Every structure is written in C-alpha cells, then in structure tokens.
Computed example of a mutant assay.
Amino acid sequence: MKISLISIIGALSVFVLFSFISNPEKTEKKEINWLSITEAYKMNQKAPRKIFVDVYTNWCGWCKKMDKDTFSDPEVVDIVNEKFYAVKLNAENTEPITMAGDTTTAQMIARSMGVTGYPTIVYIKEDFKTIQPVPGYQNAKKFKDTLEKILEWE
C-alpha cells in the first residue's frame, strides 16, 4: 500500500511539473515594456507612436494599485506593448535628464505636463506634444477604453 501511494504521488508530481513546462503561458506573466522618458523619445524619433506616461510617486497607494491591477491586466499589456511607448516617471525625482539637447528633471517634466496629483497618466502625441493628463486611479476596463480613445486622436 505504501509503495503504490508513493508511486501515485510521484506520478502526479511529474504530471504537474510537465504541465507547467509544456504550457509556458500559465507560468509566464505578461508585463508592460516600461521605458524611461529619454528612451521613449529616442524610439519615437525612429518609429513614431503615441506615448503614455505613468506619473507616480513612491508613497502613492493608488499608483501601486494601478501597477498591481491595471498595468498587469493581460489585455492592457497587449494594447500598450503593441501601440504605445509606456513611460514610468517618478514625479519627485530631481536627477538630471538630458533629452533633445535640454537638461531637466522628472519633477519638472511632470509639472510642465500639468500633473498636480498621483497617479496621473499623461498621453502624448507622436510629435511629443501633450494630448491630455488624466488624473486618478483607473481600473483595467476604464484604462483600456481610454487607450482606445487616445489611439483615435489625431
């Protein structure tokens, strides 16, 4: 009896392990390809796309909730990675950033985009002009709807 129980447990263990190895979709988690603002700017020069900037702070609870719930949604990840350049911008960072020959900071960029609260998503056109900042937490469905509307923006 002990030998057959051990055999069954061993066989089940091998089956479960094989299931994860043979089906990587279950173990692989989709993630947004986050860029710095300078990386997005450079990439946009070669292959223009709309950009969305997640303006956050380290202490912002709603920012962390968006990271956990909204930005991890597989449909959101697909839309963002296929059609946008996604940027994370810490609004309290004062380290120098050089872009297009100018030196600035993330804090100054956030202010220039009209960000006054966190989280705020700022949408930018292919010519790097701001479309609109959207303040506040957005669940995955609302965020997907907004992304689709932004894609239609000329």
Results as ranks from 00 to 15, higher is better:
A86R: 00
E148A: 14
P119I: 02
K141H: 10
D54I: 00
K68Y: 03
P48S: 11
L89D: 08
L12F: 10
A100N: 15
T116F: 06
E95D: 15
T27D: 09
E31P: 06
W153M: 14
D69A: 02
A140M: 03
E95P: 04
E39S: 12
N33G: 11
S72Y: 00
G117M: 13
G10E: 06
N139D: 15
P135D: 11
S36N: 01
T116M: 12
V80R: 02
Y85Q: 08
E75R: 08
E28A: 13
Y118D: 01
M66Q: 01
S13T: 12
T103S: 12
Y56N: 04
M66L: 00
M43P: 01
M1V: 05
M66Y: 02
L35H: 07
K83R: 14
E154W: 05
S22H: 14
W34E: 06
G117F: 03
M108A: 15
Q107M: 09
I51W: 02
F15N: 09
L5R: 05
L5Y: 09
I51S: 00
F84V: 09
F128Q: 11
P135R: 09
T146L: 14
V53K: 04
R111Q: 15
V87L: 11
R49Q: 13
I8M: 09
K83V: 02
V122E: 03
A140T: 09
T104N: 10
V122D: 06
W153R: 12
I3L: 15
K88F: 01
M66K: 00
R111P: 02
T57M: 00
A106D: 04
G117K: 13
L5N: 04
F143E: 00
K65T: 10
K50T: 02
G114T: 03
I79V: 15
I121G: 02
W62P: 06
G101F: 03
M43C: 01
N93D: 15
D78A: 14
K142M: 09
A40F: 01
T38V: 15
T120W: 03
G10S: 12
A40I: 06
P24G: 05
F20M: 11
K30T: 09
R111C: 04
E92Y: 10
K2F: 14
I109R: 04
I3F: 14
W59V: 02
K83Q: 13
E75T: 08
V76D: 00
P96I: 08
V134Q: 03
W153V: 11
I131W: 01
D67C: 01
A47H: 12
Q138V: 03
P119G: 07
V55E: 05
A100K: 13
I97E: 07
